[in-house]
Amino acid sequence: MKVIHKLRIVSRGKKSYLGAVPLVAYVGVFLGIPAGAVIVDAFRSASGSFTFRNIQGAMTGTYLASFVESIRLAVFSTVISAFAGLLVAIAVVGMADTRPRRAIMAASGVFANTGGVPLAFSFIATLGNFGMLTRLLSSAGFNIYDHGFSLYSTTGLTIVYQYFLIPVMVLVMIPPLEAINEAWLEAAQTLGATWPTIWRTVIGPVVFPPFLAASLLLFTDAFAAYATAAALTSGVIPLVPIQIGSLIQGNVVTGEANLGSALGFGMILIVGIVAVAYIRLSQKAQKWLR
């Protein structure tokens, strides 16, 4: 009886896509159409004809510089947070007691979400012109703003971004580090390997693919971030998301109607390439892990 029942359920749903239609359609309308519009507009002149002028405009002058600056910010933020996050993850995974690990994972989940406006203001209160740390260091005889530091710069943003990027890295790296079996390390020892050798031959190769994948994730995160940068720098630093924002709000007068779309297309392209690399690497990372 039961078997027949089961078979019927399976066979009836065999070729059906019906249940997936609403969600897929929704994503198509509210993500696909806007993204498609941006991509199409990127190649369209004000009169509606096909053109490369928008793309050319996006690749010259300030706009090219903002791509460079955005990538620079994303690369710096990624490299620092990736290594910092990896170190934290290693420190946490090594604990014999699992309670601190869970606490730190929960905290990371929380801090990874602390992007945006409130974060920007917290850092103004910390490292801004009159921030607590700024004044503390100043009263100790070291005014960081006299030494070239500014919170409202790429360096400042790099520090602020650590606040949500490091926790993301911790969260992503804990599972692969956890999957490193103690028996691999012990087997290597009994076979004659010292710790540096074990790092080079076993831990390194196993951790590297997920590490790289996670780094790509952090890159897209830092590259696409808008709120923190907007709240903190009010458009002082030329970053691509900020430029697009200015174009949307009509703060900038240009001859190019669809320049913003060209910039947006550039962002989709960069994030897309990184996303494909991420998927490739995650698959490789999963190959070894059971």
Partner: peptide, 20 residues
């Protein structure tokens, strides 16, 4: 499919919504 929104930055989605 559920991960696709991560590929399109929020700023770009806004631009698209405003035009489309």
């Amino acid at each position: 499919i559920s991960l696709l929104p991560m590929i399109v930055p929020a700023v770009v989605v806004t631009l698209g919504v405003l035009t489309a």
